[in-house]
Simulated assay, not measured.
Amino acid sequence: MAAVREGTYVADLVGGLGERALARLLPLRDAAGGDDIFLIQASTSLEKLKILCKEDEENVNPSTLIKLYTQAILDMTYFEENKLVDEDFPEDTSLQKVKELIAILSEPEVVVKESSLHPKHSDMLGPELLECLYWRRGALLYMYCHTVTAREEGQSKKRDVLKKCLIDGISYLLKMFTFRCPLHLNEEVSFQDTDTAKLLSEGIFSDTHLLATMYTGEMCYWGLKYCVNEEPENCDIDTNGPGTSSTLLKESLEFREIGEKILRKYISICEGPLKGQAWNTTNAKKILNFFQHCHH
């Protein structure tokens, strides 16, 4: 009976979020001409979610509902993120838009946290969806910071905001690596493909994982170059959500230490098991050199 009550609670909560997402989606579809594949997929998922949330209590599967909602917002926000990138993150509006998207991508974990069905997010969402949620938030902040640092004013204005975005982005990307255990290599286990085994032992399960290491290294570089002496002030953005650390945000992130460690890992992988696979290490080596000679 308790499980049924909890399932009904989750259905009501996710159903409300689904209705709100659908209201956000409709004008996006109209603006896109109704033919964007990601918005179509999001719409299909939200319509299915709407039907499932109205089923009898005994048939409600909270995990299915949350996963369906998560996939819908991943598709919908992907369209919105691409639009931001295409528009080169407009100065007057992009900060608020980034905040909105990160809040939306944090909602699935908020629902799980408010539910007493599962003590861990991974039990209800699964590691792949969680990795995707953290990757998308981290990559969004990476792209925003990339644009800001490329502008002249980004080097002198609102550095407190830039620093917080960098710290949150790094936190999201590092958290992405915590949901699956790296393969443990030992002499008792043999592998036909030693390169693949090496990748799995390093926690690299996809191209996205490897790209996340490079993104993290670049953000550490921007943090050390532009923000290392800046103390966070009253920011007009709050990207706090599941995966960011309030303790970390109150302290100065060790940009150099984290950056050096993760870029060495990136270079080792690209020039080791992925040698000849077109992964470029030139920029990573330049950043490492900067870390080693910077006297901040």
Rank of each mutant, 00 (worst) to 15 (best):
A2P: 09
L13S: 11
G15E: 02
E19F: 04
E19K: 10
L28W: 12
D36N: 13
Q41T: 02
Q41R: 07
A42E: 02
L46T: 09
K48L: 13
L49I: 06
E55R: 15
D56L: 14
N59S: 12
N59I: 09
L65Q: 06
I66M: 14
L68Y: 03
Y69V: 00
Y69E: 00
T77Q: 09
F79G: 08
V98Y: 04
I104S: 13
L105R: 05
S106H: 06
E109Q: 10
E109P: 02
V110G: 00
K113G: 10
H118V: 07
P119G: 15
K120C: 11
K120S: 12
D123I: 03
L129V: 12
Y134C: 01
R136C: 02
A139L: 09
L141F: 01
M143T: 14
E152D: 07
K157D: 15
K158T: 07
D160Q: 09
V161F: 01
G169V: 02
Y172V: 00
F179A: 06
E188W: 00
D193W: 12
L200I: 11
E202C: 11
K225R: 12
C227F: 08
E230S: 10
N240W: 05
T244W: 08
S246L: 13
I258V: 11
I258A: 01
I258P: 05
G259F: 01
G276W: 02
T281N: 03
C294P: 00
